[in-house]
């Protein structure tokens, strides 16, 4: 089996190395991917069309908004799938085979104090990353992951119950659904006002400013929706994996 796998991998590698000759040179501005007029349009026109300096955020949330919406749905589906696979309801003693060895009875003083200081800063930074994604690297995905990581840090430093006081399971699922609801809500609002689905320009009837500002503000709203879903699902995946689906005791 190992030999066969090795041969298959070597053959794949040789074929790829043969094909690699036809690739454009590394960093060539005139290569087909960089010369294609769609990406040139994104680079030159993004600021005049949406007043957002960060092209990646603009393309992610506006030009390719349909794509991003269903990526968020994929994350939501993965979280639901993990709950379906692992979650065990009720407390029957025969299901518990092994308790983890690393469970600390009392939180260590240094770890506890450090987390007490760090978690608010991490959460503040996560909010900054979501809100400032138009002007600097960041956005809903990164901010959501960082916000979820702050709850994971709380669960690691104390225990799972402490973190679940802030994010109980029902609230996690509500947040995850609310994120996609916000995202789709912007699309439906555009639809109701007579535009296309997720065409934010038409939302200028509801939001202050011109067409460009409406697109910029809608992007922020959409990013907040993404951040809700990603935060909730990251914490949900962690709490299911760490407690083996029982939601009693973490690692």
């Amino acid at each position: 089996m190992k030999i066969l796998g090795f041969i298959a991998v070597i053959i794949t590698g040789i074929l790829l190395l043969q094909a690699e000759r036809d690739f454009p040179d590394w960093g060539d501005p005139a290569s087909p991917a960089n010369n294609y007029r769609l990406s040139q349009h994104y680079i030159t026109q993004t600021f005049t069309e949406t007043t957002v300096p960060n092209m990646v955020t603009a393309v992610l949330a506006d030009y390719r908004g349909y794509d991003t919406m269903f990526e968020t749905v994929v994350i939501f589906t993965a979280g639901i799938a993990i709950i379906g696979i692992l979650r065990v309801f009720g407390s029957s003693s025969q299901l518990e085979h092994k308790e983890p060895t690393l469970t600390a009875k009392k939180p260590d003083l240094i770890v506890d104090t450090t987390c007490r200081l760090l978690i608010p800063i991490i959460q503040l930074f996560a909010l900054y990353v979501v809100a400032h994604g138009h002007h600097s690297p960041g956005g809903g995905f990164q901010g959501g992951v960082i916000f979820g990581a702050s709850f994971i840090l709380l669960a690691l430093a104390r225990n799972l119950q402490t973190a679940q006081k802030w994010l109980p399971e029902s609230r996690v699922l509500t947040l995850a659904g609310a994120g996609i609801f916000i995202y789709a809500g912007f699309g439906v609002a555009a639809l109701v006002l007579g535009g296309d689905f997720l065409d934010y320009g038409i939302l200028t009837k509801l939001l202050p400013g011109g067409v460009e500002d409406a697109r910029s503000h809608s992007m922020l709203g959409v990013e907040i929706g993404v951040a809700f879903t990603v935060t909730a699902i990251m914490f949900s995946i962690y709490s299911n994996l760490a407690s083996n689906g029982k939601m009693k005791e973490g690692i």
Binding site: A33, N34, I43, M55, V56, L60, T68, E71, G139, F141
Partner: peptide, 12 residues
Amino acid sequence: FANPLPHVLMLT
């Protein structure tokens, strides 16, 4: 400027 399109595809 670097090409933003591959970045967007890979970020998700």
